[in-house]
């Protein structure tokens, strides 16, 4: 564990708490892509079920339980409790365009051709693109509530912090994880446009609005 990874994980944790806060206080999931949230459940379940056979640390296990539990809870909130505020007509990204290529990639690129390792690779690839339905929705509506942008920023910062973490681990431990690093760089890249608007507008007190 190093500082970059710890701060990254905390940022990930914060992003989920911000999202839950947004839904609970506004009693609405307006502006949140159900598809992205469903993809995160798939990501966490595919990757973190190793909880049952691979113990790393209490920290690691507790985080895994939290991520699986909170992502399922968010789906429940969107699908049942605040269902009327969820508008599927603007959440139109075709997720099969993500699921199928990720499944194929995970069969080709994995560290061991066995179900658990293929699932791990699949979750890494899927996580890297799971935000696309959400970004697509943002692009379509052209604006977002400030709190939704804080959620996305925290999520993007989490990914960005994993990059210095890998650099640090390469020099201190000599380990390199090409699958995670490649997918992680792609994933962080997807946030660049968003970050630009977030840092130049939202943090200056302006509304998050995309140029027409």
């Amino acid at each position: 564990m190093n500082l970059f990874r710890l701060l990254g994980d905390l940022s990930h944790l914060a992003s989920i708490l911000v999202l839950l806060h947004k839904i609970q206080t506004s009693r609405s999931c307006r502006g949140i892509s159900f598809k992205t949230q469903a993809l995160y459940v798939a990501v966490f379940v595919a990757r973190y079920l190793d909880l049952f056979w691979r113990y790393i640390s209490l920290y690691n296990s507790a985080m895994k339980v939290f991520f699986i539990g909170s992502s399922c809870y968010i789906l429940y909130l969107m699908k049942y409790r605040y269902r009327p505020t969820n508008d599927p007509s603007i959440d139109t990204f075709r997720i099969e365009y993500l699921l199928v290529p990720c499944a194929i990639l995970s069969l080709i690129f994995n560290y061991n051709f066995m179900p658990t390792e293929i699932l791990w690779s699949f979750s890494i690839f899927l996580e890297s693109v799971a935000i696309l339905p959400q970004l697509f929705m943002l692009q379509r509506t052209g604006e977002a509530e400030a709190i939704t942008t804080h959620y996305l920023a925290a999520l993007g910062i989490y990914r960005a912090l994993y990059i210095p973490n890998w650099i640090y681990r390469y020099f201190t431990e000599g380990v390199i994880d090409p699958i995670a690093v490649t997918a992680g760089i792609v994933q962080t890249g997807l946030y660049l446009d968003f970050f630009y608007v977030y840092f130049t507008k939202v943090l200056q007190g302006q509304k998050f609005e995309l140029p027409a």
Binding site: D9, H12, D50, I56
Partner: peptide
């Protein structure tokens, strides 16, 4: 060979 050594990252 790289890290099947645990996937210790989240």
């Amino acid at each position: 060979a790289p890290p099947v050594q645990g996937h210790d990252e989240l």
